[in-house]
């Protein structure tokens, strides 16, 4: 948890920094249901922020909304601001967004097997990421593509650049995807479960290259995962998402050792393998009762109240955000939305 400690210590020093990504009151809805509700998040230069939650909690949707890649039939409202670009990204045209995407903000996708065009050599795909934004001429881009493939640790990059995606393994492809994302030195890198589809042995390598890539560019990282261990190794700060809302946020060490929101507490208890191993008999791991409701069927007020052990009638109204500590990135950077917080004097 040393990263969290330095993150908290560094908070004061960086307090004056302009946020790289500033999302305010982001809502995403279909015609009938609201999928994301009032999502606030801020990431400062060089900060690595994790976004965790169960499947269907809205993590990927948040990322897609930030990049303006929502599918047909989904509309986003609210504010998304990226450092160095005037105005609200949500109000930009597709063409205006295309100029920023892949240049100042880039994304690494979950599935390396399908994120590359099967009919193009990978070197050409990396080079194209640069030529499309005019950051390099064709021949420069080719040379830099090989350099980038070398940076992300592909052995014999000259040779690998001439390979087609199907000739590479999953881990190698994910490195290529990372190389494409880092090609134009983005100020914001969004990773959507970049290691979920990979072997455990390759995961650490890919995580390492993402963190190194982000650190060397002093870029902001938004890292989406459901793997708490990965968040703990990669991120300084974590946002916990449930039912399309951010229910808790804070430095990784604080949230993981002393959670306040009942959902976070349940999530951590369910993945606490040391406690499970300490029990002598084989017993079921603690679980959160119930399942995530389908989109649009979440209860009013606190979205978690139908599964929450501490819920009362009060939870039918929406719990306000309670800031916790004094985080440099503002009050939404650390806090929780719960009437009956776990831990503290209420335990």
């Amino acid at each position: 948890m040393s990263t969290a400690a330095t993150g908290a210590a560094g908070a004061g020093r960086r307090a004056g920094d302009e946020p790289v990504l500033d999302v305010r009151g982001l809502h995403v809805r279909t015609r009938h249901t609201e999928l994301l509700s009032d999502v606030d998040l801020t990431i400062r230069r060089g900060e690595r922020v994790g976004l965790i939650g169960e499947s269907g909690s809205g993590k990927s949707l948040t990322a897609l909304a930030v990049l303006g890649l929502l599918g047909e039939g989904l509309t986003a409202t609210g504010g998304v601001h990226l450092a160095g670009h005037e105005g609200n990204l949500l109000e930009r045209s597709e063409g205006g967004l295309a100029r920023i995407r892949g240049d100042d903000m880039a994304m690494v996708f979950q599935e390396p097997m399908t994120a590359l065009n099967p009919t193009m050599r990978v070197g050409a795909q990396v080079a194209e990421a640069m030529t499309v934004h005019g950051s390099a001429s064709r021949s420069q881009a080719r040379r830099r593509a090989v350099d980038l493939l070398d940076q992300v640790g592909l052995p014999d990059p000259e040779h690998a650049a001439r390979a087609y995606p199907h000739q590479l393994s999953g881990g190698q492809r994910q490195r290529v995807v990372a190389a494409i994302a880092l090609a134009n030195d983005p100020v914001l890198l969004v990773c959507d479960e970049p290691t979920t589809a990979l072997d455990v042995t390759v995961q650490a390598l890919v995580l390492d290259l993402i963190v190194t890539g982000v650190q060397s560019r002093d870029a902001a990282l938004l890292f989406i995962t459901h793997d708490l261990a990965v968040v703990a190794t990669v991120c300084e700060r974590v946002l916990v998402m449930y039912g399309g809302r951010i229910v808790e946020a804070g430095p990784v060490g604080q949230v993981f050792t002393d959670p306040r929101h009942q959902y976070t507490a349940g999530l951590l208890a369910a993945s606490d393998l040391t406690a499970a191993g300490a029990r002598r008999e084989r017993s079921a791991l603690p679980t959160i009762p119930g399942t995530v409701p389908p989109a649009g069927r979440f209860p009013d007020g606190c979205v978690f109240r139908n599964r929450c052990p501490a819920a009362t009638g009060q939870c039918a109204t929406r719990p306000p955000w309670t800031p916790r500590g004094d985080h440099g990135a503002g009050e939404t950077a650390s806090g929780y939305a719960c009437f009956y917080p776990a831990g503290g004097e209420l335990r």
Binding site: A115, M120, V132
Partner: peptide, 25 residues
């Protein structure tokens, strides 16, 4: 497919996507 989303995320315009990604595939 993901690679078309990825191409959009990399800032490719619709014409480039049609020519470089859709047509060959």
């Amino acid at each position: 497919t993901d690679y078309v989303t990825a191409a959009r995320a990399a800032g490719h315009g619709p014409f480039a996507i049609a020519l470089r990604h859709v047509l060959p595939n």
